[in-house]
Design a protein around this nucleic acid. Structure first.
Lengths: 338, 338
DNA sequence: ATTAGACATGTAAACCTTTACATCGTGGCT
DNA sequence: AGCCACGATGTAAAGGTTTACATGTCTAAT
């Protein structure tokens, strides 16, 4: 009826429960003959370890929680790969919590961590308030947290990120270098910390090239396909259209590309486009998208290693990794109009 | 140094641990004044429930594990949304395990479930062997499993799916209805159960229209962007090119679209394209992709409800949900060549 | 022959909750 | 006045491991 326990195995094998436990975790210190008998009893009973009891006793769960704002965002998958690699090398199981940007769900995962179901958490982007209300006092035995992507200026938790401001600056500089003078920026959602940083990079690049900042060239956006479409309408409505667009992420750029194509506006002939993130589909856009690549696998791995060392009680500081401007076919030198 | 326990709270509030527990779970049966004192003690100590102890005592974890073969595949996100909704309504936390199609990782999640860390599991697509070696004997207290998408003919576990064979048939029939006679199919990976079913649908449609099955019209594929590109090379190399292509998923179709575009082959003028899944980006392909939509949210919700009822000890049978052929711009009537 | 030590196994405590049952006090009823 | 019932709280057992320590056996060195 109910799960077999270690007692059942011990009884069947004619040994004590301590020996069973040892067979399972340190097989080499138990006599070969005994071990064989025990393992056979394990098979016969269909025994499985009770993780709750184990966690309770060991005061750890051998699990790492990765909290993602939106699984649908393809940006995250490669990061997860990097995390998994390091996690499983350290004997931890990686579990993903998808908040769907909902406060309720987010709270559920905060509780999950606080209740000791995970030995630590990795937060991907867009960290909402709930996580920062967690006291970091490890005198309370609260599991450590590492943030991937940016954290606010108060920078409570340890973080792994690229320099978003510099990357945005590089992207816009590339456009300026190609002769563009009227460059628009489609921003991310205002709530996102990255939005401000990428916007700053955009503005700084314009400033340094003595180009004017114009409010009508800063389009709102929310990182979704639809924002990209809206950006096209916005673009089209302008009396003096920008010749280049810098999107705060690839998905919006893709939304723009398809809408523009349908409306007969050609990229890069009529307008150059730069994205941000280098998501999987960026290479198969039409045209292939020039964008900023973040070293996603490395970011994940790096964050996981950081988390592990904090769990191990070592001091650890935030890490900044290099980005890369990937030149593809969506940008071209400005053709001076006659 | 270490986590505060319920004892610490009880001592501080001057009550027994039973009262503390009651305050946390059934606040209304404890006197208002006491409750207040206890809750304040909880705040002061920074107490958090120890999930391991709770699970151990209650013999359940209030967690559902969702196993995904590849988080990067955007196909899954909407399914997860449907699952989450039902799960949280039932008071369960949804956790995602990403196997990355690796046997090792998959085993890790099997163990996770078997160890009682989750009260049940939902498998998304591509179920590998490991899961089916799990004895379903619930006399051993093994948590139940529900599969989303197809299961093999032996159909051990309960499943939620669409009729892939019929859907493929409908897709190809649409092409035939538009006058196409030479229709190719780009299959999924041979290991995937869906591959065979979609292939059968394709073949049956051809058969019913008295069109010959030709080996050179059945391209291999693996559901990835690159297979789509390879399909283009394959397409281009044929002496008598197909006039329509039915891809076993959208991602491959997208790979084809961008390659074809770059090579000057126009869709749907030169060749019609149908995908499968209706992933997020299908609407913003160039041209927008005709495809089969699976009711993803409904599939997730349905599977979760099924799992819940099995957990509750009720009998439950597999469910089949309706699909939909979404007509967009990548297919057109065949223009008879002069 | 005696004993130190290595090796294999057993004993029992600790990990932290939940919950059935017991206790105690109070107010309402007869 | 005495009793019942009920509401609020306490007591203690149970849930299944891991692991420090104890025990016992055997080998090898003196």
């Amino acid at each position: 009826m109910s799960r077999p326990t270690i007692d059942d195995v011990a009884r069947l094998a004619g040994v004590s429960i301590a020996t069973v436990s040892r067979c399972l975790h340190m097989p080499d210190i138990v006599a070969a003959k005994t071990r064989e008998r025990v393992l056979s009893a394990v098979r016969q009973t269909g025994y499985n370890l009770n993780a709750a009891a184990q966690s309770l006793r060991q005061r750890r769960s051998n699990t790492v929680l990765v909290v993602v704002p939106d699984i649908g965002n393809t940006f995250f998958s490669e990061i997860l790969g990097g995390i998994e690699q390091e996690a499983s090398a350290a004997g931890l199981t990686m579990l993903i919590g998808d908040t769907g940007r909902s406060k309720t769900r987010e709270d559920a995962y905060v509780r999950y961590l606080l209740n000791g179901r995970a030995d630590g958490a990795l937060l991907l982007a867009d960290p909402q308030a709930a996580w920062f209300e967690i006291p970091t006092r490890n005198d309370l035995g609260i599991p450590p947290i590492v943030v991937i992507s940016e954290v606010g200026p108060d920078s409570g938790p340890v973080a792994v990120s690229i320099d978003n401001e510099a990357a945005a600056h590089a992207a816009v500089n590339h456009l300026i270098g190609q002769g563009h003078r009227r460059i628009a920026h489609i921003a991310g959602p205002p709530s996102n910390i990255l939005t401000a940083q990428r916007l700053h990079g955009y503005r700084r690049a314009l400033n340094e090239a003595d180009l004017p900042l114009q409010a009508e060239l800063e389009f709102p956006g929310d990182f979704g396909l639809l924002s990209g479409r809206a950006a096209f309408d916005n673009f089209k409505a302008q009396t003096e259209r920008p010749t280049a667009l810098f999107f705060a992420n690839d998905e919006m750029a893709m939304g723009f590309l398809s809408t523009a194509y349908a409306a007969g506006v050609r990229v890069p002939r009529d307008v150059s486009v730069v994205g941000f993130d280098d998501i999987h589909f960026a290479q198969s856009c039409i045209p292939a998208l020039t964008t900023i690549r973040q070293p996603r696998a490395a970011m994940g791995a790096s964050a996981m290693r950081l988390l592990l060392s904090i769990i191990a009680g070592e001091a650890a500081a935030s890490v900044r990794l290099p980005y890369e401007l990937v030149l593809r076919d969506s940008t071209a030198a400005l053709i001076p109009t006659a």
